[in-house]
């Protein structure tokens, strides 16, 4: 049994050695396709978690009408705090805000002006998706100033959403196109192998080798192409992450990238590649050869 497997594997490796150029083309295209797909998914995941962390830091500023008294202010704060998607509510008294403004702009502002600022709430959100609903509910409260609309980072939220759908689109179209190309190349490589080994195949069949023994080496070859493509993609991703990390180290504010999930990436990309190569070679054997 071990002997038989050894024979079949040696056959597959010899087949790959025969047309190195075609093998390299198939492997690198497959690798590139998986690299793009893998890279885009990683960026997608990173963006998602960035969006999540953004909403944690994400705050709204809501302004109260003039003359609302502190006990009522804390009642309203409690109401807002109980809204879904709200993490915390802080009252920013107009006096405190004014003090801060004076410190920031000592000359222009403090010259005998009366405090023009209203009382305000700082509202910290826990869920970015609820931002619109929170905004509307808060604005509807009678104590809030309709003249002074709520301020928040709508643009950032939209940017994250748009980037995500763009990435989805990019991954979908470009990745699919490349994967298709890789499939065609693997198919071609197998066809070339079948052609270049037709003499061996004929002899094997003539002396009574089963179709399985003749064909499995080609399937192994295709699968190995896919697997090697997956490994290549993994390596490229890792290299990208590394160079990105080095560049980002200058900006301490952006912090560390999450560590590269080498094992998982290899399992997923290698698995997809292997499966893909298997299918491509299966089709290559299934479509009859014109002699």
């Amino acid at each position: 049994m071990v002997d038989r497997i050894a024979f079949i594997f040696v056959e597959a490796l010899q087949a790959m050695r025969r047309n190195v150029t075609m093998s390299i083309a198939a492997i690198s295209t497959c690798g590139l396709a998986l690299f793009l797909l893998g890279g885009i998914s990683l960026v997608y995941v990173a963006l998602d978690s960035w969006g999540q962390s953004l909403s944690g830091k994400f705050e709204m500023r809501a302004y109260l009408k003039d003359g609302v008294k502190p006990p009522e202010i804390s009642k309203v704060a409690g109401e807002i705090r109980s809204m879904p998607g709200v993490k915390a509510v802080f009252w920013i008294p107009r006096d405190k805000a004014w003090e801060r403004e004076k410190v920031k702009y000592p000359k222009e502002v403090s010259q005998g002006l009366e405090n023009p600022l209203p009382d305000a709430f700082k509202i910290v959100l826990s869920d970015l998706n609820q931002a619109d609903a929170v905004e509307q509910s808060v604005q509807r409260l009678p104590q809030m100033d309709p003249q002074n609309p709520i301020q928040y980072l709508k643009a950032e939220q939209e940017l994250v959403e748009q980037s995500r759908s763009f990435l989805r689109w990019l991954a979908g179209s470009l990745g699919a196109l490349l994967l298709l190309t890789a499939g065609v190349l693997i198919y071609n490589a197998i066809r070339m192998t079948v052609f270049s080994r037709r003499k061996e195949a004929r002899i094997m069949r003539l002396v009574g080798a089963s179709l399985f023994t003749v064909r499995v080496p080609y399937m192994i070859e295709g699968t190995l192409h896919g697997l090697a493509g997956g490994a290549l993609a993994c390596f490229l991703l890792w290299a990208c992450q590394l160079s990105l990390q080095n560049r980002l180290e200058a900006f301490t504010a952006l912090g560390q990238l999450p560590p590269f999930p080498a094992g998982a990436a290899f399992l997923v990309l290698g698995g997809i590649g292997a499966l893909y190569g298997f299918l491509a070679s299966w089709i290559a054997l299934w479509v009859p050869m014109r002699s």
Partner: peptide, 18 residues
């Protein structure tokens, strides 16, 4: 087919040695 082929030996017209 391999079951049939194992019941015979074939020496083809072209030598067909590797």
């Amino acid at each position: 087919l391999h079951r049939l082929r194992r019941q015979m030996g074939v020496a083809p017209q072209d030598y067909d040695l590797l």
